[in-house]
């Protein structure tokens, strides 16, 4: 685990693998996460990216930001195409290349979940990273199954009726060697998570919460603040499961303590997407967060008892 200070010192002299001049929106946290993920993975990395914001923010042809091979891929094919790259390299005897799928939540929790589940079940040696901006942001903020309940999107103009699908837990149920959640707005978390994943053989899944200023409707200068609030309120839990053993990450430890948990309304308030929530709905969502935090605390306790 490297600290921010060490990380800055260590990385400042190395060449960038995600070059300046990308076409990301102002305040984009996904592009920030990709940049720091690549710092951890290094030059010998290939990215497969199904339809998502990244297909656009890497740059319009003939310009491009990634300084590693990058394939734009069909929406449902992020994991399967990466599995093919892994198979090709294995068959040709090339062993030192990290294969990374860089997908949005739509390409992961909706259209891509079958291929993802398949690739993990087949023990594909790759990293699948989902940057979760909780909706189809690239196509103009439509709901995905990763969109939280009561969120206003262009396809849920009165607010979504269902809860967010917890895909990281679905993946964890595959008995995968490494699964973690992390926060796009925390480069140290991103860097350390990808460093850990890189060292594991087999399928690795990383779920990255990526605050999105235009989609969530907050000021572009508040991206990092939104990420922090998501974690401090317990709305998004940072954890990892390595070889079946669940651990909570430091930043989320505080949120498990009800006394120290920031009220969820503080997280909702600065975001235009939650503007239609009634007081009742906010309190329902607070209950939902509390129950999830309690469930995680009980799980951690039961693992500690083992």
């Amino acid at each position: 685990m490297v600290s921010l200070k060490e990380l800055i010192k260590q990385e400042s002299t190395k060449p960038e693998l995600f070059l300046a001049g990308s076409s990301a929106c102002a305040g984009c946290s996904s592009v920030l996460a990709l940049r720091w993920a690549l710092k951890a993975l290094g030059k010998r990395t290939v990215i497969v990216s199904p339809a998502c914001c990244a297909n656009v923010y890497i740059g319009l042809w003939p310009k491009t930001s990634p300084a590693v091979p990058y394939i734009n891929m069909a929406f449902a094919a992020g994991a399967s195409a990466a599995a093919g790259v892994v198979a090709g390299y294995e068959a040709l005897g090339k062993k030192d290349i990290n294969v990374l799928t860089w997908a949005g939540d739509g390409g992961t929790v909706d259209i891509g979940i079958q291929a993802l589940s398949g690739a993990i079940e087949r023990n594909t040696n790759f990293i699948y990273a989902c940057y979760d901006n909780e909706g189809y942001m690239n196509t103009g903020t439509q709901r995905s199954s990763s969109t939280p309940k009561y969120t206003v999107t262009t396809t849920t103009p009165l607010g979504k009726h269902m809860h967010k699908k917890d895909v990281a837990q679905i993946i964890a149920a595959h008995d995968i060697p490494y699964v973690a959640t992390c926060l796009a707005t925390d480069p140290v978390d991103v860097y350390n998570t990808f460093m850990e994943a890189k060292a594991v053989h087999g399928p690795k899944y990383i779920h990255i919460l990526s605050p999105c200023a235009p989609g969530w409707r907050f000021d572009v200068s508040d991206t990092v603040k939104m990420g922090n609030l998501a974690v401090e309120s317990g709305f998004f839990l940072l954890w990892k499961q390595v070889d079946g053993r669940m651990e909570i990450k430091g930043k989320s430890l505080k949120a498990l303590d009800k006394e120290k948990r920031v009220p969820v309304k503080d997280y909702f308030k600065p975001q235009g997407r939650f503007r239609k929530l009634t007081e009742e709905q906010i309190s329902e969502m607070q209950d939902w967060v509390d129950r999830r935090c309690d469930r995680m605390a009980r799980r951690l306790q039961s693992e500690a008892d083992l």
Binding site: I71, M73, A77, A81, S117, E121
Partner: peptide, 28 residues
């Protein structure tokens, strides 16, 4: 046959996997 056989979960994934493998230069 000295080949890597990917037993995928759908035909969509079949062809996606071969896009990936062929892009590495492997006969697919």
């Amino acid at each position: 046959l000295d080949a890597n056989y990917i037993r995928v979960e759908s035909e969509h994934s079949v062809m996606a996997a071969l896009v990936g493998s062929s892009m590495t230069g492997a006969r697919s």
